[in-house]
Amino acid sequence: MTTGNREDYLINILRLTDSKGGVVRTSELAAFMDVAPASVTEMVRALSEAGLVDYQKYKGVSLTDAGREYAMNIRRKHHIVERFLTDVLDVDHDEAHEEACRIEHSMSDNTANKFCRIIGTRQDHDCATCGDPCNRDEDCPTLETVEPGTKARISHLRGDSASNVKKLLSMGFVPGREVSVVSRIGNGPCVLSLGESTIAIDSELASAVYLDCDAGTAQ
């Protein structure tokens, strides 16, 4: 039972439950995926044990919150890849869909985020439930969370206040530039080295500067 296989089940349960009020019968799922009902039951049990779906005999299968999030993340990757293939490389839509179905399982979250921010993701019928597709980066470190001594590339900026983002941009905190944390004064401001400037920003601004996901360890 491969990860890809599990993920296919999750994404298909998501497709069917979206339009059917949250629950799908195993027989429907088997028909939709063109597999034997017995395989479906086996897989659904496994997914249920992993806490990704709720399975009640005679009633059907529904996604748990965790399962739903997992499935949506896969579908988001599917969508990003498909977009790239059709919009940038001019691949035929059906072919792009087939390929995306394979690539979606092997693409990392980090790569998906970067892909997404560069090509953009127009929302269409297939991705109506993706929400804000490029905004899944809560796990990436920010200048506020990394240890002094860390050196990393700025991945992107995000904050509640547009004026804070503008302020950061104007001082040179733009994606792609390398920044290192010199010191941090208690819970207060941190002193950073950016290009040839030394800049102090407080924790609120620091929390808006996201770093590449592999940053976070002092070097």
Partner: peptide
């Protein structure tokens, strides 16, 4: 579409 405001892309 991009999840980022255009200011960021221009500054970048």
């Amino acid at each position: 579409i991009h999840g980022d405001s255009i200011d960021i892309h221009i500054a970048k």
